[in-house]
Nucleic acid binder design. Structure first.
Lengths: 337, 337
DNA sequence: GTGAAAGCGCTAACAA
DNA sequence: TTGTTAGCGCTTTCAC
């Protein structure tokens, strides 16, 4: 069974049907020019009868604007990003813009594809969360964009705005908190990729905080795992068995911290009495009484909103602060003393 | 400071620079016609030097295809949907398609907007998860689409394919399981909107299963709350205080089940000894030892993949099964006896 | 092997 | 108040 595919009405169809020229239909649709009321009504009538919608593709050509912004995030599966997406979408909608979403799958190769696709679509701007491309290449690709914002990246040059999280303060608070509770044998739980900014910043902050307290950093006190709780559970379980002196774990984010708690439970190590655990993000589940994770609240939706606002400012040629640092909020729960 | 916005190179720019006609550049780009090797190389060279990308908008006009599919989901914040998105994106990518993602925000009004935007973009197909629009209106809007697939909706007509979850079997298993453990006073925890298909199906399945076991349904044994754990915690806590006879809770999804567990803990009711709890979805956190929620695994990524495959089949005019029912898998954990 | 001309759907400039 | 013409960037005939 072959059905005739639905064919969208064009401005010509409407014009013919209403007995006017296409230009007049255009006037009615855009409402920025005088049209006799009678004509207006007649055209409107045909428009709704035919279900006519002006083609964005055709308009793009004329206006030289696609009304599309691109958004690339490292991995949609991570619940953290859902709200960032929400924030970006919210602002885009305010501006009458559409969001083309891409899952970079933590792959630099995929990021290249995304840039190509966005260029083909002549996206009016793009937001890239935690890009993994080599800086030199990223710079060059950004040069070709009309406007760009990076979330979680070192500042590069004027070709992109930056939205970052104030991890340094957070790390200082985290170590202060741990040390006040007498935890001097701290370990940091990290994701596999050493080059990504959010990790580097956490690690630097961690080292700096230790230094500030004149605590020597034990090079062995680092655990590597995939950024999800199962992987972190296995890695930390093994780690704690060979490092019984460790009494505090600072994790890259909440998911990994869940794995840490799971590992302690499995080994019969009391949380927080024997091992204290801190995460980052404060995802909603961290507030569950059974998990009760001490963490830092990152305003995810706000991150998306700020990045998008910055992008639209840039698209309008407005100067912007260049870099925004977003504060976190310490959330003390029962995984620390 | 005003910078000249980056202007993308056109086929004309390339042609001029390479000393050929636009037609030849087109030949090189599309590679479906003979071009002298020397010419080919020269053109390729200019293309990469200028960073030329053929404009999708221009191509859309010529081909009468946008290479875009639309995807609307009820609420991005719900971690359930992240993987559905992933599945759709995965298939779209295989076909060289872009996904325009929309957050319907659980609002019928917003769904109308989404349809308008997709029509303006001349999307070649669309996937709508749990649409809330009145059926009559939805039908009419679908008529105007080239291809469409609905996830979690009653079959309508040939204008849309359907992907649903086999909730009925799940509900039967859930009640069997509860009853075998001697739980006859079951309550169902539902989201606010009575009309959405996933809820109606669960509730019908629940009633049918009770009937099959010749258990009379107590009309009071229903709890309504927002689809997140905090709201469900409050509602269920209150409910259990006024309904101490209830010894089993079947929840719309895992998030609500977390709230149920939280409520039981707060009231000092042992899970599962005094109150058993079942969820739906098997989101990753349900597997954490501290939560250990009995639930039904819904292959989220697979749902996205199936919906997208169905859509592309329909876009190619292939006949398809019309409705796909996806199986769930019972995951028995410690929240039930 | 390559190029000239027409046209996809729309709007801006200019007439009438 | 309305219509005509040209052109946005690309591909598709059809010549050469």
């Amino acid at each position: 069974v072959t059905t005739v595919p639905y064919k969208a009405a064009t401005i010509i169809d409407v014009a013919r049907e209403a007995g006017v020229s296409p230009r007049t239909v255009s006037r009615v649709v855009n409402g920025n020019d005088y049209v006799r009321q009678e004509t207006y009504d007649r055209v409107q009538d045909v428009i709704s009868r035919l279900g006519y919608r002006p083609s964005r593709a055709a308009r793009s050509l004329v206006y030289d604007r696609s009304m599309i912004i691109g958004l690339a995030i490292p991995e949609v599966k991570n619940p953290y990003f859902a709200e960032v997406i929400g924030g970006v979408e919210y602002v885009a909608q305010e501006h009458g813009y559409n969001v083309l979403l891409f899952n970079a799958q933590n792959l630099a190769e995929r990021e290249r594809d995304i840039f190509r696709i966005l260029e083909e679509n002549r996206a009016d701007g793009l937001i890239f969360n935690t890009p993994r491309l080599p800086v030199a290449e990223l710079k060059e690709l950004l040069q070709r964009q009309k406007a760009a914002v990076l979330i979680g990246h070192d500042p590069i040059d004027h070709s992109a705005g930056i939205v970052n999280i104030d991890i340094l303060s957070a790390m200082n608070q985290a170590t202060d908190h741990m040390l006040q509770a007498g935890r001097r044998n701290l370990a940091y739980v990290k994701p596999p990729n050493d080059s990504i900014y959010p990790h580097r910043q956490r690690f630097q902050g961690f080292l700096a905080a230790l230094k500030r307290h004149q605590i020597e950093y034990n090079q062995d006190h680092i655990v590597e795992c995939q950024p999800e709780w199962e992987s972190s559970y296995h890695a930390i379980r093994e780690f704690l068995q060979t490092h019984p002196e460790v009494n505090g774990l600072i994790c890259y984010h909440d998911l990994m911290a869940f794995g840490a708690i799971e590992a302690c439970d499995a080994l019969g190590l009391a949380v927080p009495d024997q091992v204290a655990v801190i995460g980052f993000d404060d995802i909603t589940f961290s507030g569950l009484n059974r998990l009760s994770l001490t963490t830092f609240k990152i305003p995810r939706f706000e991150v998306g909103v700020q990045a998008a606002r910055m992008l639209f400012d840039r698209m309008q040629g407005l100067t912007d602060p260049g870099t925004i640092i977003i504060d976190t909020e310490f959330v003390r729960r029962n995984s620390t003393p």
